[in-house]
Write a protein that binds this DNA or RNA. Structure first.
Lengths: 234, 234
DNA sequence: CTATTATTAGAGTATATACTCTAGTGAGTC
DNA sequence: GACTCACTAGAGTATATACTCTAATAATAG
C-alpha cells in the first residue's frame, strides 16, 4: 500500500480512536513509523488529510443514499439505508465530533459539507415520499416532510455524541457499532405515528430489534444507584 | 466586580464567540488586561474555569425546567420551557460545541453532565406527561414517551450545530438568538402527530411563529444558485 | 549507465500553550 | 510601624505543535 494511503488510513484510525484534536501530524507519522517530513511530502497540512478523509466519507454515504427512481421502496430498503448510514457514521465517527472546528478551519470542507448535508436531507425526504408511495407511511405535505427529514438528520448526527456523553465511560470503555445502531430505534420512533395500519406491526417489530439493551447501560457499571430512570432504557 | 467573576464572564464570552479550542488562558488574561499569573491565582487551570461555567449553565437550566407538580400545565408553560432552554443554549453555546473533548478532559464534568442530561430527559418526559394530562397531546405509554423525550433532547442539542454548519458563513456572519429559536419549530414538529383535536390549531399556530424565515437562508448571501431545495426552507 | 523524479529520513524551527515562580502592592489590623 | 493577607504583575519554562529544510535513497525512463 502506498504511503499516502497508509497516512489516510492511520489518520482515520487515530482520529476515530482518540479524536482529531488529540492527534497531531507527529503522532500520525510516529504511528506509521515514518518521518514527519515524509508525511508532509504527501500532504500539505493536517487539514488536507482531513479533507481527503471527508471526501471518502461523502462518497460512501452518497453511494448508499442513492434512492432508486425506477422502482418502489421496501422495508428492506429502509433497513439498508439506516444500517448503512450508521455504518458510515461509525467508520468516520471522528468527523462529527469536531465538526464545527473542522469547518471553521477549511473553507472547502465547509462548502462541501454544506452541500453534503443538503443532499442527505433531500435523500431522507425522498425516502419519506417513497415510503408513502409504497403505503408504508401516510403521505405528508412537503412542508412537514422536510421538517421531519431535518429531525431525522438531527437525531442521526447527534446520536453518537449522546451515547458518548451519556456513558459514564472513561477512555477505557469504548463505544461499539452495535450500540451506535440503537440510534435506528430512535429514528424509527420518529416514524411511528405516520405508519399505515398495514405496516405498523412490521415496522414496530423492526424497531424492536434495535431497542437499546440493558446490559450496556452506563449505570450498570457499578457506579452506584443514581436516579437514572430515563437512561435506564439504554 | 471581582477579578474571579470577570474571568468567568470573559471566558464565557470568548468561548462563545470563538470556541473553547481557540481560546487560551493567555487570551483570557489579555482580554481582561490582567496577567496570566493573576488568572492562575484564581483558577488552578482552564478546566476549572470551564467547570464553573458549566455549573452556572446547569443551575440556569435546572431552574427553568422545574416542572410544577401542584398544578396542570398550559401551552404558555410549554412555550416558556422551550424559550428558556434555547436561551440557555444560546448563553452557553460554546459548551455543546466541544462537549466530547470537555468531558474527556474532566471527570467531574463528565459525571455532572451525565446527571444533568438525565434530569433534562426526565423533565422533558414529565412535560409530555403533563401535556397529556392537560389534554394537549394524547397520552403515550412510558416506553414511547421516553424515546420521544430523547428525540426532543437530540433535536434541541444538535440544532445549533446544524445551523452553524448549514450556514455558508465565514467567521464574519454569526448566528443570532432568533435563528437559534427556530429550533422550537423543529421540536414542535415532533409533537404534531400527538396533538389532540382541541389544541391542534393552537399548537400549529405557535409553531408557525418559529418557522424559519427565508431571508437568513445560507443561500441568499449571493453565493450563487445551488441545488439547495431542502435548505430553502430555512 | 545516466538523468530525472518520487520518496523518505531526520534534524530543526518558530510559535503557541498551559502553567509556574518570584516579587511585589495596597488595604486593613493590631 | 510591623504584620497579614488577598490579590496582581510579569518574566519565565517545559512541552507540544504544525510545519520546513536539506540531504539522501529508491525507482524509473531514456
Amino acid at each position: 500500500m502506498k504511503t499516502r494511503d497508509k497516512i489516510l488510513l492511520s489518520s482515520l484510525e487515530l482520529f476515530n480512536e482518540r479524536g482529531e484534536r488529540n492527534i497531531t501530524t507527529n503522532h500520525i507519522a510516529a504511528h506509521l513509523a515514518i518521518s514527519p517530513g515524509n508525511l508532509y511530502y504527501h500532504f500539505r497540512n493536517k487539514s488536507d488529510i482531513i479533507y481527503e478523509i471527508f471526501l471518502e466519507y461523502e462518497k460512501l454515504v452518497d453511494f448508499y443514499l442513492d434512492i432508486p427512481e425506477d422502482r418502489s421502496i421496501t422495508l428492506e430498503d429502509l433497513t439498508f439505508y439506516l444500517e448503512s448510514v450508521f455504518d458510515g457514521l461509525w467508520s468516520y465517527r471522528f468527523f462529527h465530533r469536531d465538526l464545527e472546528y473542522l469547518l471553521d478551519s477549511d473553507r472547502r470542507l465547509r462548502q462541501d459539507y454544506r452541500e453534503f448535508t443538503n443532499r442527505c436531507l433531500v435523500a431522507i425526504s425522498r425516502i419519506f415520499e417513497k415510503l408513502a408511495e409504497a403505503g408504508i407511511i401516510q403521505p405528508q405535505p412537503e412542508e412537514l416532510r422536510s421538517a421531519m427529514s431535518l429531525n431525522v438528520w438531527l437525531v442521526i448526527t447527534n446520536w453518537m455524541a449522546f451515547l458518548k456523553t451519556a456513558h459514564a465511560l472513561d477512555e477505557s470503555t469504548s463505544l461499539t457499532l452495535k450500540e451506535l445502531k440503537q440510534g435506528i430505534y430512535q429514528v424509527l420512533t420518529l416514524e411511528i405515528p405516520y405508519l399505515t395500519a398495514d405496516y405498523r406491526e412490521q415496522v414496530m417489530a423492526l424497531r424492536e430489534k434495535y431497542r437499546p439493551s440493558l446490559p450496556e447501560s452506563a449505570d450498570a457499571s457499578g457506579e452506584g444507584c443514581r436516579s437514572d430512570q430515563t437512561l435506564r432504557n439504554f
